[in-house]
Design a protein around this nucleic acid. Structure first.
Lengths: 236, 236
DNA sequence: AACCCAAAGATTGCATACGATTTGCCCAGA
DNA sequence: TCTGGGCAAATCGTATGCAATCTTTGGGTT
């Protein structure tokens, strides 16, 4: 993806370049290539993608809206460092929304969709066998992708956008607070949820989704990450 | 609010001016002073608020994120003209989220909050007696404010932001598709919901909220709005 | 008369320039 | 040596200018 110094954006130059940059940064953040707290200077981002500060700024503004980036006036933009409380709010939001998405998906999913889901899940299993940080990133990403695909077949663009944001922030949270080898059970739950959806059992599918989210959250170690904010350093 | 030609933003000049402009435009849109389809030219907005295009552009970009404004590349920004389908998605989203907000509010609401809610609701009743377009705007706004206040006591910043967006877009939808004298029953339902919350009856409060949303949506006439393009004016 | 094409006007997309604010550093003084 | 003030570098916030694109209008052709 990187060529020398500048990063070439996939050829959607017809689209707004700021959107392409947002996507690139988004992926980097949820892949944990950009860790929380990293400063995203407008100049740096701009020169990295070979655009002016104007468009870099627009991308950062979008990410700020999504909660992936926090900007401080006259100081700059930083990769978001979600607090345990934010993490809980994220998962609380998902518990509200995702069962409804599952229910909608049951009504609208096609055999073709299910086929595609299965292929995707099986492909992801390959990553699960491997270990290491790169595998872990792929695992986190794959876990999110399932939920995003579900949201896309639910047929509600607004909820889909909310889920985009929630999944991105969840990935950040999992990367920050996740214990090491956890999501394996989550992956099998994806299969189970898909089965229930295929059978049209909306109630059980929604319930299992709730449990699934609970499991994901339960596998987090939501202790305040000390050393990041000075307020914690003082209160300790 | 308007002084001569430029609009003076409340003295939060310390804050980002683009945010203040966003708020002003937002209010104008949900108050229906800016009707769907209205073009929001960067130059026009900028000179109205006495800022450069840069700042105006940032405000429009934020509104685009919220779905209140639609931008077309190289053409400009326009006040959003939600389709019936979008309207249905908005209310479907609200049906998912708001019962959860009510449940959270039951746990966290204080006596002080309830007091403040009651005052607010009673104050709104004054508007309800009046008729006319201005009263209608106040009615729509008041109806949304109740839901927003509820979201704010629920203690989940993410859901609160989602609700901000959903209420704003709902207001737009109600202004577009709402029948004339409808929300009166909705207002009494606000009282009833508040009572149930006060009693700590989360289940019933959430149920009533669901019905309330159903009522709001049922009072819409979700026919494709044909009259906004001039083509329809000619066909009549 | 209807249609097509071209040129002018307007508006956005983007880059750059300049002022404002913050941060970090260096040096003077205790 | 340590503290405090001030200066300089870096970065952001904003304005403005230029190029690209879209819309419109006018003229020419069929």
């Amino acid at each position: 993806m990187s060529i020398g110094e500048t990063i070439t954006l996939s050829d959607n130059a017809t689209e707004d370049r700021s959107i392409a940059i947002r996507e690139a940064l988004r992926n980097a953040i949820i892949d944990r290539r950009l860790t929380p707290g990293t400063k995203l200077s407008e100049n740096e981002v701009g020169s990295l993608f070979d655009v002016s500060r104007t468009v870099a700024r627009a991308a950062l503004q979008m990410l700020t809206f999504e909660g992936l980036v926090k900007t401080e006036r006259n100081r700059g933009a930083f990769v978001s460092n979600p607090t345990p409380d934010e993490a809980r709010q994220i998962f609380a939001s998902r518990r509200l929304i995702e069962p409804g998405i599952v229910a909608a998906a049951v009504d609208r999913i096609t055999a073709k969709d299910i086929e595609s889901f299965r292929r995707q899940l099986e492909e992801e299993e390959h990553y699960m066998t491997a270990r290491g940080p790169s595998a872990r990133r792929a695992e986190i990403k794959a876990s999110g992708d399932f939920h995003l695909m579900l949201a896309s077949v639910a047929g509600n663009a607004i909820l889909q956008r909310f889920m985009d944001e929630l999944i991105a922030r969840s990935s950040l949270v999992i990367a920050l607070y996740g214990r090491t080898g956890v999501s394996s059970c989550g992956h099998s739950e994806h299969f189970a949820i898909l089965d229930l959806i295929e059978r049209g059992d909306a109630k059980r599918a929604a319930d299992l989704m709730l449990h699934h989210i609970d499991h994901i959250e339960a596998d987090l170690d939501l202790q305040p990450k000390h050393g990041l904010g000075l307020k914690d350093a003082l209160s300790l």
